[in-house]
Design a protein around this nucleic acid. Structure first.
Length: 375
RNA sequence: GCGGAAUUGGUGAAGUGGUUAACACGCCGGAUUGUGGCUCCGGUAUGCAAGAGUUCGAUCCUCUUAUUCCGCC
């Protein structure tokens, strides 16, 4: 049951778009935020909780599931959905990000990428064909091409070479891919260089993927640079297909990049920040480990109605985090994912009325205070 | 009452007659972006029980006092 994207509405003032797709009898709206569940679990959370919050797609990771438990096990279990008991849509990352985070430049060859297993040091070799094959075995709904996520900053020469490689890998992946129930996305790379982004986007579009991702962002660049890179890519992508900005989840970046034509986002930050004691609120990100919350018996965010905010106080959650109790991480994960999910909901409603620009100003004022500048 | 040993930050402790008293935990901040889930990076004793002395100089040597622990009466 391949999901099909329908573009419903476009802003007249910017590139924001409203869309939807059906999956398993349910309709999901975009733009959407997708929580990350690397090891076939959104860390500390049960699938029921994720659905309760109103999330749609969640992510899982090819690299990690390949190493453990192995895609064969997941296949025997009946696929990822059955294995992890999640009947919503699932997207798998290709392992391309691990090229960035785990491999050294000398490990990257045209054939594929040499890794050291981060658990036991074993030598590993991942190719575009292998990545796609694993993802077909996992049975996710959206499959990512195997790409090279380049470091930032990188020279024009390196990015150019890397884009050509990413395009060759995309083609090889597409030739391997043969599942009618899954979507396959191409990934636009090209660093901060407009002609490279354009070239990459146009070549991918010629290959006719089911959707397109923007990669190579959220790797340490400043916000204006990121926005620029996104704009260079979406400009050359077809309107009737999903666009996914990989690894982006800072609240303001969600708004900014929706305005640049993005439909899907993912980021580890709501769950990682939660594990480290941080919470998103309307008035900015707070660190619950700060001693000023020791006797703060109010909820994390007074405008929030998530399970954590309905039932628990800052002082209690602070205590859990300080005592290294998992329940604290779980409560904050629920809260942070709820925060981003609700933010996307607000964004969608402002696309409907084409008032996203005003919403952005309002949000910034509340979240960062009066003197915000892009850093 | 007699004899012995000890006393270093919030805690456990290292250390030396000579510029900024190790390390760990805790505490106080910060970071985190297609997740390498006990992570990373900062800060944290103007003082080494108190006082006096020896010395150019003492946390380190001497004496007195206090406190704690151990043994004996």
């Amino acid at each position: 049951m391949k999901l099909e994207y329908k573009l419903k509405q476009k802003s007249k003032k910017n590139m924001a778009r409203l869309g939807e797709f059906n999956y398993n009898g349910k309709t999901y709206e975009t733009p959407m935020f997708m929580p990350v569940g690397t090891n076939a679990t959104v860390k500390t959370m049960a699938p029921e909780e994720i659905k309760e919050i109103g999330c749609g797609i969640i992510l899982a990771n090819t690299y990690h599931l390949w190493l453990r438990p192995g895609e064969d096990i997941v296949k025997k279990a009946g696929g990822l959905h059955k294995f992890m008991n999640y009947d919503g849509p699932i997207l798998t990352d290709s392992g391309g990000y691990q090229v960035f985070s785990l491999a050294k430049p000398k490990d990257i060859t045209d054939e594929g990428v040499h890794f050291k297993n981060h658990e036991n040091g074993d030598s590993l070799f991942l190719t575009p064909e292998k990545s796609i094959q694993i993802q077909m075995d996992l049975g996710s709904d959206i499959v990512m091409s195997f790409d090279e996520c380049v470091k930032w900053p990188s020279t024009y020469e390196y990015c150019k070479e890397s884009v050509e490689r990413t395009l060759r890998w995309a083609k090889r992946g597409k030739d391997t891919f043969n599942c009618k129930d899954q979507m396959l996305f191409g990934i636009v790379q090209g660093g901060e260089y407009e002609d490279l982004r354009r070239h990459c986007a146009e070549e991918l579009v010629k290959m006719n993927f089911d959707g397109y991702s923007v990669g190579g962002t959220s790797v340490g660049e400043d916000k204006p640079t990121m926005y620029k890179m996104v704009g260079y890519a979406t400009k050359y992508l077809p309107e009737n297909k999903l666009r996914y900005l990989m690894g982006v989840g800072d609240p303001i970046d969600l708004i900014e990049n929706v305005m640049r034509g993005i439909d899907l986002f993912d980021c580890v930050s709501p769950t990682r920040l939660a594990r480290h004691g941080h919470a998103y609120t309307k008035h900015g990100k707070i660190n619950l480990k700060n001693s000023k919350y020791k006797e703060d018996f109010t909820k994390v965010d007074d405008t929030c109605n998530c399970y954590a905010c309905k039932n628990y106080t800052k002082a209690y959650i602070r205590h859990l985090i300080t005592a290294d109790e998992t329940f604290g991480a779980r409560l904050l994960s629920i809260h942070n994912i709820t925060f981003l999910t609700n933010l996307m909901k607000e964004i969608r409603s402002h696309i409907k009325t084409d008032t996203l620009e005003e919403f952005k100003e309002e949000f910034i004022k509340n979240y960062y205070g009066e003197n915000y500048e892009n850093k």
